[in-house]
């Protein structure tokens, strides 16, 4: 691990100021991803600004939205009574990820910004455009069973590993930022960028920008929701494919639908085309099949991950059937 300085921030303003004043600084949430990557010499920040003790409040704001401080732990979000009652898909997604110990430390901000689990990204002996821009991508022709089928580029086929992000993508969440140039808000769906020819640029965050909170509008009152994740063992493993779905059925017809996919792309993937197929159509297996086909219509398999396409389609159909 490369040497670094460590300081703890007591409030948002001092965190942003500290990061701006220190070249090569990174924010430290729980550290469950960053410390690991630093130990592998994949991340080499010169300074850490610990933001894990910044505001962590979870609750409904005067605007009716659910607000979660970026430093709230994944466990505290999943256990929150309001989250579990009115936003159950958030709690479900969280408890489908990592382990009890990791969820106790992992923060909301850190979870959204965790890096890919592509093994070549972790292996400093391998070629990886994300780690070393311009060096190549050993995954494209290598072991790419875990990799992306949607939105990938010849330069990078990595996936985003967050479960929480997939639920938040289905819920139209917003991410609130503070930075040297002030505060701003971005839609969660716009937070991550597709790789294109710059896979090392993963988000729209400007240098030194801090996530301060995530807010979520209430889902349609009559919608039922579910988070379904398929992985290679029952627990404590990243998604091969996951599905976050909200479905509102009235008189046998789909009144509204939201569908997001995990494990398939470099960002939580909102399947808007599939939602359009569903909305206004009869809530039947035939409709769900068409929606699932539409969701994966643009998918492009690599040598070892072709199974993800029918797998994602089946999980979409079974989740929608369960909710209808």
């Amino acid at each position: 691990m490369k040497p670094f300085t460590y300081q703890r921030a007591d409030d948002v303003a001092s965190a942003v100021a500290a990061a701006a004043a220190t070249p090569g600084a990174a924010y430290l949430g729980g550290g469950t991803n960053l410390v690991d990557l630093m130990r592998q010499n994949v991340e080499r920040p010169a300074a850490l600004v610990d933001v894990s003790r910044l505001p962590a409040r979870i609750g409904i704001g005067t605007d009716g939205r659910l607000w979660m401080g970026a430093a709230a732990t994944n466990t505290d979000v999943a256990a929150d009574p309001v989250v579990r009652r009115d936003f159950p898909i958030i709690a479900e997604a969280i408890v489908n990820g990592a382990s009890g110990q990791i969820r106790n430390t992992a923060t909301v901000g850190g979870n959204l910004l965790q890096r890919t689990r592509c093994l070549y990204f972790y292996d400093t002996g391998a070629r990886c455009n994300k780690r070393e821009p311009g060096s190549g991508c050993d995954a494209v022709d290598g072991h790419n069973r875990m990799h992306a089928v949607l939105g990938a580029s010849p330069e990078c086929v990595a996936t985003n590993p967050s479960d929480l992000g997939v639920a938040l993508a289905a819920l139209d969440a917003r991410v609130h930022l503070a930075g040297p140039a002030g505060g701003r808000t971005v839609e969660l769906l716009d937070l991550h960028r597709l790789p294109g020819d710059t896979p090392h640029v993963e988000t729209v965050l400007a240098p030194g920008e801090l996530i301060t909170a995530v807010s979520v509008p209430p889902p349609p009152a009559a919608a039922r929701s579910a988070y379904r994740k398929v992985r290679e063992r029952a627990s404590y493993a990243f998604a091969l494919v996951s599905v976050a779905a909200l479905l509102e059925v009235r008189d046998g017809v789909v009144a509204s639908a939201r569908l997001a996919l995990g494990g398939v792309a470099a960002k939580p993937w909102r399947a808007a085309v599939a939602e359009a197929v569903l909305t206004g159509a009869p809530a039947t297996r035939a409709t769900f099949d068409r929606a699932a086909a539409a969701a994966l219509a643009d998918a492009r398999p690599l040598a070892h991950n072709g199974f993800k396409i029918p797998l994602a389609q089946r999980v979409i159909v079974s989740t929608l059937e369960e909710l209808s």
């Binding site: 460590y6 703890r8 430290l28 729980g30 550290g31 469950t32 410390v35 690991d36 850490l48 610990d50 894990s52 466990t75 382990s99 009890g100 110990q101 990791i102 106790n104 430390t105």
Partner: peptide
């Protein structure tokens, strides 16, 4: 999980926690 300890009563992984934290 072999490194699990309790910090303020909550179980965490000591290997992914900096002592400074």
């Amino acid at each position: 999980g072999a490194c699990t300890v309790l910090v303020d009563g909550r179980r965490v992984l000591a290997c992914l926690t900096l002592a400074a934290q």
